[in-house]
Design a protein around this nucleic acid. Structure first.
Length: 452
RNA sequence: GUGAUCGUAGCUCAGUCGGUUAGAGCGUCAGAUUGUGGAUCUGAAGGUCGCGGGUUCGAGCCCCGUCUUUCACCCCA
């Protein structure tokens, strides 16, 4: 066993895996482009001041911090070192961190380039992010997110567009999904009417687990978070809400009638569903009041996508944030976006065997190498093949045919062109079909025509 | 961060109660009439048994630590 390996939660990708990953990225990217989004990229590292405090306490813990270069301990106060106060020491020895998601760097980007971007700004971004989480199923420390966001417009048409994009992408990939939608304003309204507005985060995190731990588990957790018996009682009708999306909203309207913000949330989501009704998407969109999402910058719609046929965390998630840029000094700009988790989508496609087989083939024809002047003839023909746009390669050494054919075989190259001394003399080459074993003498032009 | 779990050849795995030189299959490489692959046959190479310490006459096997894998919790794509 080699002593060299890679950090926990990171992975190498071989050629087959890359072909499959690129299939996912290409699919997602082409849909993003189709809907009018433009790409940007931001650095792997951001200043810690940009990152800290945006993802909640838990998020801060999961941020990879980058230690300062050089003598990073040199200027540190001895008292701080002796005290072993990690949080305090961190400020002195680290000022950068690896990005945790693409949304916060995007907000920073928008603020920093506010004079260059035209609003509404529709951007997509496909890059890796890092989280110092403990790896497990569907969870990595380095993984790719594919984000689409529109910023600078409060129109709910954007939420509708995100659902359409989601529908389009998963339809193309062949994954059956359930889109769950909720609205933070509804959650705020609920917290308000039960008189616990400041406990909104605790409440949402608890009811988010309804699926997993059941109603009793949720109630227990709420009680542990310091909610009184009577407050928890008030929550029960909301937790037990059933029926269609429309029915749920009707009932909720009654419950939240005294909460202005709650009513606003209901109006928003009702509007979105009304738009969606006109479109007839194949993907099911469900109002899920237990959907909370921990990220505390969301203020309106919250969206989460789950694969129907695989046991796995969400494969996409997003929502509206009214004031993310405000933290960076540019208030009043509303944005909404969704992130597709490429690595989890990979795991889903893999588990369901949904990768198309043609994603694996690369080289279409290999020119066998006979050395000497045959090799020169082969090289020239290789050049012609490539100029004609045919993915091709020549074996780099005049090895035995057994070895050269074996190479083509293991690389699943479907054709071999044989240019030996006879062929150089006649100018007519052998084209061998590796699948059927058939072989025919053809002019170079005919070969190209056939392979194109 | 908490609790489990895994680690033996490139890969998948055997390895008895602690006993002498650690095995198999697949793969790789080399051959089986030098211009033809997949199949078959022959042969070869390949191991600090994750790493470090301990117990023992003796450790792949037992104990401790550590790293990694997988899984659950927390949280999340």
């Amino acid at each position: 066993m080699s002593t060299h390996s890679i950090p926990k939660g990171t992975r190498d990708f071989n050629a087959i895996e890359m072909a499959r990953r690129n299939y996912i990225f290409d699919t997602i990217r082409s849909v993003f482009k189709l809907y009018g989004y433009v790409p940007i990229e931001t650095p792997a590292m951001e200043n810690l001041s940009t990152l800290l405090g945006k993802y909640g306490d838990e998020g801060d813990k999961l941020l990879f911090k980058v230690i300062n270069s050089g003598d990073y301990l040199g200027g540190v106060d001895e008292k701080v070192l002796v005290a072993k106060d990690s949080a305090r020491l961190l400020k002195d020895i680290s000022e950068k961190g690896l990005r945790y998601d693409l949304t916060v760097p995007f907000a920073r980007f928008v603020v920093q380039h506010r004079n260059e971007v035209v609003f509404p700004f529709k951007r997509y971004q496909i890059q890796p992010v890092w989280r110092a989480d403990r790896p497990q199923k569907g969870r990595y420390r380095e993984f790719y997110q594919c984000d689409v966001d529109v910023i600078g417009t409060a129109s709910l048409l954007n939420e509708v567009e995100l659902v359409r994009i989601t529908d389009e992408i998963f339809t193309r990939l062949g994954i059956k999904v359930l889109v769950k939608m909720n609205n933070r304003k509804i959650l705020s309204g609920i917290a308000e009417i039960i008189g616990e507005a400041d406990k909104i985060i605790d409440i949402t995190v608890a009811i988010d687990k309804l699926d997993k731990i059941g109603i009793d588990g949720v109630n227990k957790e709420l009680s542990e978070k310091g909610l009184s018996e009577s407050t928890i009682d008030k929550l029960q009708p909301i937790l037990n809400l059933g029926g269609s999306n429309r029915e749920k909203l009707e009932k909720l309207k009654v419950v939240l009638t005294s909460s202005a913000i709650g009513i606003k949330g209901i109006e928003e989501i009702t509007t979105i569903f009304a738009y969606l009704d006109h479109l007839g998407l194949s993907t099911q969109v469900q109002l899920d009041l237990t959907l909370a999402r921990g990220l505390n910058y969301y203020t309106g719609a919250i969206i989460e996508v789950k694969a129907k046929d695989v046991e796995m965390g969400s494969i996409s998630g997003g929502g509206r944030y009214d004031d993310l840029t405000g933290i960076f000094g540019m208030p009043g700009v509303s944005g909404v976006g969704i992130s597709f988790g490429a690595d989890r989508i990979y795991d889903v496609l893999n588990e369901l065997n949904l990768f198309p087989s043609e994603t694996e083939q690369a080289t279409k024809v290999m020119v066998a190498n006979f050395g000497d002047k045959e090799e020169i003839a082969g090289l020239k023909f290789l050049q012609t093949l490539q100029q004609s746009g045919i993915p091709s390669e020549m074996f780099p050494e005049p090895s035995k045919m057994k070895k050269q054919f074996g190479y083509a075989d293991s690389k699943k190259i479907p054709y071999i062109v044989i240019i030996g001394s006879n062929e150089v003399e006649s100018g007519i080459f052998q084209l061998k079909n590796m699948l059927t074993g058939e072989q025919e003498l053809l002019s170079p032009e005919k070969i190209i025509e056939k392979l194109k």
